[in-house]
Design a protein around this nucleic acid. Structure first.
Length: 824
RNA sequence: GCGGAAGUGGCGGAAUUGGUAGACGCGCUGGACUUAGGAUCCAGUGGAGCAAUCCGUGGGGGUUCGAGUCCCCCCUUUCGCACCA
């Protein structure tokens, strides 16, 4: 494999010496002018055609802006600038997602305070972002760490609390022993902490949760009518994990007083109930004690202890089946037979009812379990090639062609019919009902860390848990030097009595603040609501402004947020809608996921030393060439491969445009052939940008420049001027410079998109492809509206065609304006 | 294992609905200009063949006048999810 170039590699292409313009000078000039003239400021109140172009805000890392950030922002900026040229009032804000473990860990590592580091990082980011030439309205920037912002993050928490959507419970949580904090399920990847790769442990702590699972049906249903990337919708659907099935009650005899229990189980295959030969409870199931016979008690207790200690990695990744028999039995309501009740850790308490019916014949996991413990395996479904007696060597899980057997009243039915029928039958006895389950768990939002918004509640000995009144918000995160997390399971804030000791807002007695802070994902779940209302310090989002600017028209971001941020922000928006604060319930009308950039075929990483540092490329080639190259190197929604050598091509393209603008004259008339290509290009670029096909838009402009420069001729004004606007979303500085040079008023971005004239774009002659028996034999120049008869005549005049098309044609296929196929 | 996306020249990638495969760019080859060229400009560039022509979009079948595109089987890469009943 080719050795990836390092950033200090001497083979890094040097900028051309014989440049025709100096991007450094031009870009600095226009960045200054944009600031002076407030070119990028949007009149939020007065806008008549508002268009909100949102990009995912970055975490301001100490390393500075990553090329991935710039790829994302540039893609959004081009879209925003294009919408402005189409006559919209475009609002393109950008802020910083600066709270969270990432910042805090970095601060701990370098021995500084995050409150000191973040402003430095933000200043550096701002410098880099301005260099990149983004059309950002910096008057409306925000940082999630600013009390003016997180005051409202806390307010949102209270809205959920008021609506019963925030609750506290003792929970087995994912605990990262390195970061010393609780992680959301989403932050545990393959059993390890997504941040530091440490295996995650199970711990039982008091945690705050949001009832996002209550919203699962709506979160799922709405996906059908929002304009989002399909890949993102699919990821959300999978994450929500809807399962249609049934809850079936099994009557059991246990050991307690009375001794009779009902064990509800969830299954998506109620049709297989005649094959249910045992029940399994999760080790944490509340009925385990009551169902364990004295003789088995010791064994069961031991097993439960073991699974309790077991870390999530082992529990969730091991496929070895373990379990113990409780000594008790339940009755299968379909077969009326007695079946044993087991406890096993392959059944999870969090999903369904925490209990299952074991159908080893038709579930791979149950098959393994039954094989291990010699439980009966019964066939109740057979495919086309089996019958009721065919032995099972593995679980038969196919449904499509299955027919029921050994199933009493269900025999002969298809799987789907049997599913419905058995639920009807059992429902009559009150033993079953159809239910829908979701994989989505409630959102654990508390963090035992320092660098986040304190959760705004106070605990009082007399009044219990009391909300911090709205007038007392924000609960300001105190500036403390000692913020290192420890192993105690409580936040570092719990070590600062001077902060957490506070009078109860209800009774005035001394109480204690909640010392946990909230998840960073809560900060980012509503930031888009805040941007247009920055400056309105008395409300989270001002009513009229919000009505005018939201929901977001276009949101572009990474698909790594397909299930975290994008789901949480939808949830928070729905809650605020239900609480009457918003009149829409989906935050982003359109969302597109961009791809990711790799470098010379390999993932960029610090250890490999193949990180693309934007500053270096902007310095060497100019922001315009860099932007254009990023958009050209691959399809935007797929990402692409950054090749150092290739950037020279886009730079050459811009130089040539500059040179043509210097050379052009208004003598005589424009060349009709060039004008034809120009108008085809206007149409192509205008079609490509809205669908984010930036690479082909750039290619089309390059093609046009090749046509324009063909031959020794002086380009005409009319051939060059529209090109300045076409390129402007990609290369805004150069476009402004040329716009000014060629007598344009104000900003090129207020000059409108060039008008497309179909008459000028129409071809005088087209190249008709002539095939004989489906093979291309000639290409002939004909008028575009030629009819079949004339086309055949013209084709037969071609020597090659005549040579192959001998005899009477069997069939003629004529696609007007495109192709003629003579079949002989 | 389940789900998504994708396999096209030396390389990154084009090819809105089945209709010229390889646009555009990099690289490479030759030339011009030049003290010089890693600048700029011009020409060429999928493979084989002197040519006519033939072969070519991961592999194998199929549908069609015509398949990179549609259908079936297989292989590979990649990204999610993963004991979710």
């Amino acid at each position: 494999m080719e050795k990836p170039a390092t950033r200090n590699d001497p083979t890094l292409p040097a900028p051309p010496d014989a440049i025709t313009y100096d991007p450094g000078t031009v870009e600095r000039k226009w960045q200054r002018i944009w600031k002076d003239r407030e070119t990028n400021s949007t009149d939020l109140q007065g806008a008549t055609k508002p268009f909100y172009a949102l990009m995912m805000f970055p975490y301001p890392s100490a390393e500075g802006l990553h090329v991935g950030n710039l790829f994302a922002f540039t893609g959004n900026d081009i879209y925003g600038r294009f919408q402005r040229l189409m006559g919209h009032n475009v609002f393109e804000p950008l802020g910083y997602d600066a709270f969270g473990i990432h910042s805090e860990n970095y601060a701990l590592k370098v021995g500084k305070h995050p409150a000191d580091l973040i402003p430095q990082n933000i200043a550096n980011f701002r410098r880099q972002l301005e260099q990149a030439g983004l059309m950002v309205d910096w008057r409306y920037t925000l940082s999630t760490t600013h009390p003016d912002y997180y005051k409202w993050t806390q307010w949102i928490f209270l809205q959920l609390l008021n609506r019963g959507l925030a609750y506290k419970k003792q929970a087995a949580v994912n605990w990262c022993p390195t970061d010393k904090t609780v992680l959301a399920n989403e932050q545990v990847v393959g059993g390890v902490c997504e941040r530091c790769r440490t295996p995650v442990e199970q711990r039982s702590l008091e945690q705050w949760f949001f009832r996002i699972s209550d919203y699962a049906p709506r979160l799922l249903a709405n996906l059908d009518h929002i304009d989002w990337s399909e890949s993102t919708k699919t990821a959300q659907r999978n994450w929500l994990g809807r399962s249609d099935g049934a809850e079936i009650s099994f009557a059991a005899t246990g050991v307690g007083p009375g001794g009779a229990y009902e064990i509800p189980v969830f299954t998506t295959r109620p049709d297989t109930i005649f094959g249910a030969s045992y029940l399994v409870l999760a080790p944490e199931h509340p009925l385990v004690d009551s169902l364990t016979q004295p003789a088995e008690r010791k064994k069961v207790e031991k097993y439960r202890e073991r699974t309790k200690k077991q870390d999530i990695v082992t529990r969730k990744t091991s496929t070895d089946k373990t379990g113990v028999f409780t000594g008790s039995y339940a009755m299968n309501p379909a077969t009326r037979k007695r079946i044993p009740i087991w406890v096993a850790d392959y059944v999870l308490m969090e999903y369904g009812t925490g209990a299952i019916m074991g159908v080893p014949g038709h579930d791979a996991r149950d098959f393994e379990f039954a094989s291990e413990f010699r439980l009966p395996i019964v066939r109740v479904v057979c495919g086309e090639r089996e019958d009721a007696e065919t032995p099972l060597t593995e679980a038969y899980t196919e449904c499509d062609l299955g027919t029921m057997v050994n199933s009493g009243p269900l025999d002969g039915l298809s799987v789907d019919d049997a599913k419905r029928r058995i639920v009807e039958i059992l429902a009559e006895q009150g033993a079953a009902k159809a239910v829908v389950n979701y994989r989505l768990h409630d959102w654990c939002i508390s963090r035992q860390r320092y660098w986040g918004p304190p959760i705004p509640v106070i605990y009082c000995d007399s009044c219990g848990m009391v909300q911090v009144p709205e007038k007392d918000l924000p609960v300001v995160l105190p500036m403390v030097e000692d913020f290192k997390p420890d192993d105690s399971g409580v936040s570092p804030l719990a070590r600062h009595e001077e902060w957490y000791r506070v009078a109860c807002p209800e009774c005035g007695k001394m109480g204690r603040r909640e010392t946990d802070v909230s998840d960073t994902f809560l900060d980012s779940a509503w930031y888009f609501l805040r941007y247009p209302s920055v400056g309105h310090d008395d409300v989270p989002f001002e009513k009229n402004i919000t009505k005018k600017w939201l929901p977001v028209n276009s949101y572009i971001g990474g698909n790594e947020h397909a299930v975290l941020h994008l789901l949480y922000s939808r949830f928070i928006t729905m809650v605020l809608h239900d609480a009457g604060h918003l009149d829409f319930e989906e935050p982003y009308t359109r969302f597109r996921a961009h791809g990711h950039i790799i470098r010379e075929g390999a993932k960029m990483s610090k250890t490999q030393g193949n990180i693309v540092v934007p500053d270096e490329y902007i310095e060497a080639w100019g922001a315009d060439a860099f932007r254009t190259y990023l958009m050209f190197l691959g399809p935007y929604e797929q990402g692409g491969d950054f090749r150092d050598q290739s950037i020279s091509g886009t730079r050459r393209f811009l130089d040539r445009l500059f040179a043509s603008a210097q050379a052009m004259s208004d003598d005589g008339d424009p060349d009709p052939a060039v004008m034809r290509k120009l108008h085809q290009t206007i149409r192509k670029v205008g079609d490509d940008i809205p669908r984010l096909s930036y690479n082909t838009a750039v290619a089309a402009m390059m093609e046009y420049m090749n046509v324009l420069r063909k031959g020794e001729r002086t380009p005409h004004h009319d051939e060059v001027l529209p090109m300045i606007t076409l390129v402007s979303p990609f290369a805004p500085h150069l476009a402004e410079e040329l716009w000014e040079q060629t007598g344009g008023e104000g900003s090129v971005f207020d000059g409108g998109w060039p008008a497309f004239d179909p008459a000028l774009a129409a071809e005088e002659y087209i190249e008709l492809v002539v095939q004989v028996n489906g093979k291309v034999r000639a290409k002939i120049a004909v008028p575009p509206d030629i009819d079949q008869q004339a086309a055949v005549a013209a084709a037969m005049a071609d020597a090659t065609v005549a040579r192959f098309a001998v005899g009477a044609p069997k069939k003629i296929v004529f696609v007007s304006g495109r192709l003629l196929n003579i079949v002989v």
